[in-house]
């Protein structure tokens, strides 16, 4: 089919007598030039917006409102201090950090063996199990919101960091299992077979051969979980009620809502935004390539 279609341009050549460049380089057109220009403009605006946001976090509210385009006169951490102390961001940052790290580590630790099994044993049961896990990818969080709240309320796990961690682990299972299964499948079997020949047990081959080989994929899965748990808002907003349990996004929402009564504290707000965004920026700069690869690879199929 593709071959037939590829032939079509040949007939086009007879008609079009314009110079056919044998090489691919050197094709220039006005539209393309505009496109390239626009893209660079987008890049410039994105970076400028990020820099601008960070810069505003160091200015006080009055200065920000007077001249939103200004740059900070000095490095003033007042906004951060105020957000940290008044806005409950200190506790919230700690809660977010704890929840993100604990739930991401556990998610990967629980999903990895499962993905390994599903990728290595191929029978009816594992095929239907894989399908069962994939099912969860299509269920939006608002569906499970209310039943989850009711269930956790019965066992006193609402308004609790432990409960939130459990929920994050459960909700992350489909994606992580899916991603890691694809990753384990891509690993060569030969080393495992050789180890098995040498008398390593099945668990041993997983623990001592496959896991070290899969370090990259597991790290990718872990980082992807860190990002999604750090940013998760709807479940946290529903399950947490008391201020000292808030995670960062929930604290930010409550900070925004307080301002409608107490007047806008844009300085503090910008400081809060920076606290939400900066860790992601650090991770992205540090492990960016791995991330884009993991996300796009995991999406294949």
């Amino acid at each position: 089919m593709s071959e037939y279609k590829l032939l079509a341009p040949v007939t086009a050549r007879r008609r079009g007598r314009r110079g056919v460049s044998p090489a691919l380089r050197g094709e220039r057109s006005v539209v393309r030039g505009i496109g390239v220009g626009l893209l660079w403009l987008v890049v410039a605006i994105s970076i400028a917006a990020l820099v601008w946001m960070v810069a505003q976090a160091f200015r006080d509210t009055r200065a920000i409102l007077d001249d939103p385009w200004g740059v900070p006169a000095s490095l003033d951490f007042g906004n951060f201090v105020r957000a940290w102390t008044v806005g409950d961001f200190a506790v919230a940052t700690w809660n977010s950090l704890l929840t993100t790290v604990v739930s991401s580590v556990l998610t990967v630790a629980i999903a990895a063996p499962c993905a390994y099994y599903l990728s290595r044993v191929d029978n009816k049961l594992t095929r239907s199990l894989s399908l069962y896990f994939i099912l969860g990818l299509g269920i939006p969080a608002q569906v499970i919101l209310i039943p989850l709240f009711v269930m956790l309320n019965k066992v006193y796990l609402t308004d609790s960091i432990i409960g939130l961690n459990l929920v994050y682990i459960g909700v992350s299972m489909p994606f992580t299992v899916f991603l890691l299964t694809a990753f384990f499948r891509s690993l060569p079997l030969e080393m495992e077979e050789a180890a098995a020949l040498d008398g390593t047990t099945a668990f041993g081959t997983f623990w001592r051969i496959t896991l070290p080989l899969a370090k990259g994929g597991i790290l990718t899965a872990f980082i992807l979980q860190v990002i999604s748990h750090w940013n998760e808002t709807l479940l946290a907003l529903t399950l947490l009620q008391s201020t000292e349990k808030y995670t960062l996004p929930v604290a930010l929402i409550s900070f925004v809502q307080q301002q409608t009564y107490s007047g806008a504290d844009w300085g503090g707000l910008f400081a809060g935004l920076v606290m939400v965004v900066l860790p992601m920026l650090v991770i992205y700069v540090w492990l960016g390539r791995r991330l884009t690869e993991g996300l796009t690879l995991g999406m294949g199929k």
């Binding site: 269920i139 039943p147 929920v167 299972m173």
Partner: peptide, 8 residues
């Protein structure tokens, strides 16, 4: 934590 709530 996922399927039971969804059915719920």
């Amino acid at each position: 934590l996922f399927i039971v709530p969804a059915l719920g």
